[in-house]
């Protein structure tokens, strides 16, 4: 389905309405979606689709995915989470995952920023140098 210009404009208006002090507000998001579904304005399907995408990207910006080759100890994960929260704010959500492909070390992805300290990355860097 082609998303029209009007739908895109509506969706960014909706998105602005669902922010409080620059942060996504859960309650506002629900009420915005609810009212759109009830009122069904023109292009509402396209608008909601774009809106969903905007919200998804906004959530991703405040979500850290911490990957490691082996499960982290409780102590280490707590340090990592605390450090990240200091850097990115207290409302950061975190998720831990085990990825053996990393071989060793850790890879943290927040929004589009990636901090890569994994062995795989270092091997790749080494390969590039030669």
């Amino acid at each position: 389905m082609k998303i029209t210009k009007e739908a895109r404009r509506l969706s960014s208006q909706l998105f602005r309405l669902s922010l409080t002090e620059g942060r996504l507000d859960r309650a506002k998001v629900f009420s915005v979606v609810q009212s759109v579904v009830n009122e069904k304005p023109r292009h509402y399907l396209g608008a909601l689709e774009t809106y969903q995408r905007l919200v998804r990207l906004e959530i991703a910006k405040r979500h850290a995915l911490i990957e490691s080759a082996t499960p982290l100890s409780a102590e280490t994960s707590e340090t990592v989470v605390n450090n990240l929260k200091q850097k990115y704010g207290q409302d950061l959500t975190t998720e831990f995952a085990v990825n053996p492909d990393l071989i060793g070390g850790m890879r943290i992805k927040i929004g589009s920023d990636v901090f890569d300290g994994s062995v795989r990355n270092r091997l790749a860097l080494l390969q590039e140098q030669f």
């Binding site: 992805k109 589009s112 920023d113 990636v114 901090f115 890569d116 300290g117 990355n121 270092r122 860097l125």
Partner: peptide, 10 residues
């Protein structure tokens, strides 16, 4: 020695 690289991905 522990090189952690920061990059921007998409």
């Amino acid at each position: 020695k522990t090189t952690t690289t920061k990059s921007n991905v998409g």
